[in-house]
Write a protein that binds this DNA or RNA. Sequence first.
DNA 1: ATGCATGCAAATTATTTGCAAGGTT
DNA 2: AACCTTGCAAATAATTTGCATGCAT
Lengths: 150, 150
Amino acid sequence: MPQKEFNFKEQLKERGYKLTHQRQAVLDVVLNHEGQHLSTEEIYELVKATNPEIGLATVYRTLLLLDRMELVYKIDLDDGCNRYEINRHNEDHRHHHLICTKCGMVEEVQEDLLDSLEEQILKKNNFVVKDHRVKFYGYCKNCLEAMEQA
Amino acid sequence: MPQKEFNFKEQLKERGYKLTHQRQAVLDVVLNHEGQHLSTEEIYELVKATNPEIGLATVYRTLLLLDRMELVYKIDLDDGCNRYEINRHNEDHRHHHLICTKCGMVEEVQEDLLDSLEEQILKKNNFVVKDHRVKFYGYCKNCLEAMEQA
DNA sequence: ATGCATGCAAATTATTTGCAAGGTT
DNA sequence: AACCTTGCAAATAATTTGCATGCAT
């Protein structure tokens, strides 16, 4: 029970929201599935394991809330639904996705080389960048090997 | 009537598709509204001006087709619908969006500094990057000024 | 003629909302 | 007690699909 749990309650209270076991359960699922880009429906199914009475609408509402509180990070993997990851503020906001257009695999890259680009944007466009989303499309290792053999 | 029109017919034929005036009209609208990130619904409305008989489903089908043919470029501006731009292959695939989280303004940036990052990804992840999408979120010039005055 | 393409309406999918009932502080 | 939250079902919104008809080759 790290201080994170405590913080959640505090952070909710600061904004006038209450801590419910449904909200805790949704956050826990996202926390326990780091790097898995779960969809709302998938999170719903996982939460039902411990909280069978939860409604899908509540999961939607909770994820909207967590997104607004910046506790989760919404990602769009072009499959028609929203997906979420835990938002680790300590690592800053930098973290990109590699999407294989052959097999659909999604991998993550941590490095960040966009700082200089963001500086240029500030100078040329008078636009202050607060966050960014980067998706790279291409071929993953496995698909490349399969293609070479063919 | 530049060769582009001719190419369209050829490119369709290569894939076993036919040139219809509906398809031409949809392409024309996207061509004539460069830089405007039109939604399917907006394109439908614009096409109706010249082709009142066209159905919304046809616009959806045509944009899917144009996307597969890489003649248009699908963008997601987080407003719940797909938006499209003409895909200018000659400028390579580099072109990013600045999205103001205050007022919703969308601006474009042309520069591309991601090449070195793509090289690193190839080395570290064995992933060959063919395309990428970059969205920068922040505050535009106007909103910054408004915030300073407050 | 042949077979892809279209328009319309109905179906689907993801998400949101209204509302009465329940839970948190 | 006061008010936020929830679950359910109904409502939306964007997109897709079935099908009879229409058009391009």
